[in-house]
């Protein structure tokens, strides 16, 4: 019996060495696909657009392509009821480097600031004759409600434990989404002004702290607790014992509104992947006819909050009133 069982085990274990795998090619023929990206901003005169094409990766690795798949020599028009403009072709150094290096090709308009209240159309004709088109409906410009937005911090009312900002009248029929952020404007010694973000809340994890920030939301109202602003003021110079090297100018609250199609696109592309679930196919929103990509518009608004001198000095920082006034 013992011999038979040993022999059986030997046969079974030896099968392990007959490991097999077969060649398999998961590729179909390359499908030509063109993506047009153009996101207009109402806070600048410089508008950009980009057209990219699909590509085949070698050995199933998309990283094998090192040259940006930018489509050159396309003609791109943007039209409203007021004007029609033609994009020019150019390139710029990117702020960060990706697999294509640090040069970014794009099409641009250098003297155009969109009016969010207008309807815009875009048309791109590619060198191969393909025509990509799209249009966007009006988007509300950001209008702050002064009564409900904090102008001075700390509040004069000592019982007030948080400050708040409110913008665009709430309308339940609207499905616009807003993203908002509050920054402390400061500089260190003679360096340029910098922005230090104030989070919604600070979280402690593994002896380190990180901030949780407001994500895209339909809410047109936000509050920041005083204690969080105090904590941000301290963290601003956390690694520097000499606090008087810092000058604080005030706080700036910014709101960005996305038009409907851009909001749909953003939400469908944001990295939301569950860490365990595994999804093979990906769907995302596009409003480009004959291709993919997005034509959208972002409208911005800024509200400045003055920090009182005594408050700034209480942290050991220098105080400067320049840059603390509201421009709108």
């Amino acid at each position: 019996m013992k011999k038979r069982i040993n022999l059986l085990l030997l046969v079974v274990i030896s099968l392990n060495f007959i490991s097999c795998e077969e060649d398999f090619n998961p590729y179909a023929e390359l499908k030509d696909e063109y993506h047009l990206y153009c996101i207009l901003r109402d806070d600048t005169n410089f508008q950009t657009a980009k057209i990219i094409r699909s590509y085949a990766g070698e050995n199933l690795s998309p990283d094998s392509l090192t040259e940006e798949p930018f489509v050159e020599r396309a003609r791109i028009w943007i039209r409203s009821e007021e004007e029609q403009l033609v994009f020019k072709e150019g390139f710029a150094e990117r702020n960060n480097e990706n697999k294509y290096g640090n040069t970014s090709h794009y099409y641009y308009l250098d003297n155009f600031r969109p009016n969010p209240n207008l309807t815009y159309e875009i048309e791109a004709v590619l060198p191969n004759g393909l025509r990509l088109t799209s249009s966007i409906e009006p988007t509300p410009a950001v209008q702050f409600m002064w009564v409900n937005s904090q102008k001075i911090f700390p509040p004069a009312d000592l019982t007030q434990t948080a400050i708040s900002y409110q913008w665009n009248q709430s309308n339940i029929d609207d499905d616009f989404q807003y993203i908002a952020r509050l920054n402390i404007i400061y500089s260190k010694e003679n360096s340029p002004k910098e922005y230090f973000p104030v989070p919604f809340i600070y979280m402690m994890e593994n002896d380190s702290t990180y901030g949780i920030y407001r994500t895209l939301s339909p809410d047109n109202f936000i509050s920041f607790r005083n204690v969080i602003i105090n904590e941000a003021m301290e963290k601003l110079s956390e690694s520097e014992p000499l606090k008087n090297k810092f000058t604080v100018y005030g706080m700036e609250f910014e709101v960005c509104v996305l038009n409907r199609s851009l909001n749909n696109y953003y939400q469908s592309t944001i990295l939301r992947g569950e860490t365990i679930s595994l999804v093979l196919n990906e769907n995302y929103y596009t409003n480009i006819e004959n291709g993919k990509g997005i034509f959208g518009l972002q409208a911005f608004g800024t509200f400045k909050t003055i920090l009182t001198q005594s408050y700034v000095n209480s942290f050991g920082y220098n105080y400067s009133s320049t840059g603390g006034d509201n421009e709108r």
């Binding site: 993506h35 950009t48 590509y55 085949a56 998309p62 990117r94 702020n95 952020r181 592309t269």
Partner: peptide
Amino acid sequence: LAGFTDQLFMNDLFNEWFQDY
């Protein structure tokens, strides 16, 4: 798989998208 493409991923909605593309 019929190829790859690059999709614009807007990391920070306040920044110029073509700069931080």
